[in-house]
Design a protein around this nucleic acid. Sequence first.
DNA 1: GTTGATATGTTATAAAGTAACAACTATCAA
DNA 2: TTGATAGTTGTTACTTTATAACATATCAAC
Lengths: 159, 159
Amino acid sequence: MEPIGFESHDHNNCIKDGLDAVAGYCAANRLQFTPVRRRALEILLQQHRAMGAYEILDQLRKDGLGSQPPVAYRALDFLISHGFAHKIEHMNGFVACTHPGHDHTPVFLICRECDAVAETHAEPSHGLLGRAASETGFTIEQAVVEVLGLCPNCGDSAP
Amino acid sequence: MEPIGFESHDHNNCIKDGLDAVAGYCAANRLQFTPVRRRALEILLQQHRAMGAYEILDQLRKDGLGSQPPVAYRALDFLISHGFAHKIEHMNGFVACTHPGHDHTPVFLICRECDAVAETHAEPSHGLLGRAASETGFTIEQAVVEVLGLCPNCGDSAP
DNA sequence: GTTGATATGTTATAAAGTAACAACTATCAA
DNA sequence: TTGATAGTTGTTACTTTATAACATATCAAC
């Protein structure tokens, strides 16, 4: 599973592919991919970094797509609840999912220098987490894994 | 490494031992373990669950130890920066560390039913995280790992 | 005891998130 | 095609979480 986000790539594809994948998933599952939701996702897709809800709201406002906080938070709730976006708890921010439609436990690599976020995966019921949980009889439902540090670009220049 | 928090235990020892360990560490390292800081830690130690900063502030206020938010946040900053407490990002809450004084990467098991928090450990440079990081050239500095689910007590009664 | 660093008290405000309700839109069955 | 229902958006007002800035007090070391 390759993290996406640090290496250079054709970013137009990220946006288009992301929107298309979600549009398709919504069509197939009778979910309403409304203008607000679509635009919110597009805004997130434009950057591989965590954005604040109010930052997203500012953009929506410029497009005449809602100007009050609940509009942004509701769009984000929709995107998150269907796995199209994730919340970065550590930053009170949000990122687009890099492979929407698949059930997964995301692991984020977050650069403290440039705020870039790369997403990869782990299966929490295996490995360290699973072992600690099963030892105590704890039932895992969800895992928040956020790794902070320096991305390849920032690590090289400012070590 | 055994998680602490779910099984029954002599809780008076948790409080006393926690305070003693931190007091000793502070004495040895010329840190000021002031009344506000000591009481904030004691409040956290009284419960194996995440508490909000304002919840802690309420308690401090009752003891005449400060009544404004910065007092609580500064005490928590001190405790966290020296590893005596941790922030649970997922809940905007704080817990006492169960083994202060040791450098470590905490992993939290959080019960969504009763809010109990157990702390265990992982070494992020090994395992899944380390592999994902080294593949991309990412330098890990810190990891936030919060596992949500049901503790043994709540999982049995309400599955 | 003076000085420089550290800690606390306080005011004010920023940032993040939600409750509640009214108005609009999609969906689908009759 | 109408009407019932569920889902979505607009808006007001508010709660919760967190911090900036500055004055005052205390500590620690010389």
